[in-house]
Design a protein around this nucleic acid. Structure first.
Lengths: 189, 189
DNA sequence: TCAGACATGTAAGTCGTTACATGATTCA
DNA sequence: TGAATCATGTAACGACTTACATGTCTGA
């Protein structure tokens, strides 16, 4: 596919666990071609602006396979909300509570969005109508019905991961608020 | 406290949600001093190598407070395991299953560690004995018993956040494995 | 005709990690 | 005496973001 296609798929379908920008994508695709892991072909489709379609080579497939099999190094966790919470805790309990409540509201909003996407995906998996965005990215990738079914499940399961993560955060908010509220709340500002 | 102290607290107490390295810490402390948000004082304690103790200024407190109150921008999520999973899904179901099982084992191992820390913290919060590491970092910071209790709770609650996150991931592993195993597993390699 | 999607790319700058360099003290 | 801990810092590199630059086609 093209660099533009990659960006679109990531933005529309994988945004809950990945992101990319053109400043990374195009130089990386160039590098892959230089290293013989992908090939670049011009593809002038129906009078549109010239685009370049990249195809994985057999060396690229091997490399991809090696990467998948290799151990995944532990992600660098940096949770700014928790850092704020930690740095607040020595001071005012009230500040901590407000911090968590605000975080809770944000997480609830994101959960709603994810649940809406989940409903669309569930429907699509049962052969129902899918939204325009989903339709568009499925058109870019898999062609056979079986491949499409696999892709839909992959989108669905990664989304479920995002939902589980948010549910965990919301459960923590409840727990933390309960713990903070049963301590002295007299500390001012 | 000193740059070294900061590193120690982050490594020992906040490693489940934050990390810092000296390459960031020392230049940042310098910048804070230049900006008038902290002051630097030499502190030669008991013949040890010269160390520098940094103290927050009133301008620094204001700045810190502003930062805490400001909206926290959504963290950039990049989950390599999910990316591998997604890129595998179009190919072999077996590969996906192995990927998740390996992830599951790692998460279980981390959960055990966190639960061990949780037990120590719970014990310490009830006035019991705390480990050497915890003792050491509590010595660096809070002095009054009330402040220590607050700090212990902060360590405990942020750890609970980490535990909730891992539990969520493990629940997802179960769910994903169930979904993958009930599909055709005949796909080779 | 004008906004918005399609499409590719570069440049500058920030952020973060790793490795290096240095040197004192303590304890086995 | 030699490893571990205490302690501070720099340099080089790599990853990532943001803003910019350019231009086409489509549909309201």
């Amino acid at each position: 596919m093209s660099g533009y296609d990659i960006k679109k798929i990531v933005d529309v379908g994988l945004s809950h666990f990945w992101n990319e920008n053109y400043g990374q994508i195009y130089p990386t695709l160039d590098r892959l071609v230089r290293d013989g892991l992908a090939s670049k072909k011009p593809d002038r489709n129906s009078g549109k602006r010239q685009r370049f379609v990249y195809t994985i080579t057999s060396a690229g497939k091997k490399s991809l396979n090696d990467w998948v099999k290799a151990a995944t190094d532990a992600p660098v966790v940096r949770n700014e909300v928790l850092l704020k919470f930690f740095l607040c805790s020595h001071a005012s309990t009230g500040k901590c509570i407000r911090l968590i409540e605000s975080h809770q509201m944000e997480q609830r909003a994101i959960l709603s969005e994810y649940q809406a996407s989940e409903a669309i995906l569930k429907n699509a998996m049962q052969g129902g109508d899918m939204g325009e965005d989903l339709q568009a990215i499925l058109t870019i990738t898999g062609s056979t019905p079986k491949q499409r079914a696999k892709q839909l499940r992959a989108f669905y399961l990664t989304l479920r991961h995002g939902i589980r993560a948010i549910e965990g955060r919301l459960a923590w908010c409840e727990e933390a608020l309960a713990s903070l509220e049963c301590s002295d709340t007299t500390a001012a500002e």
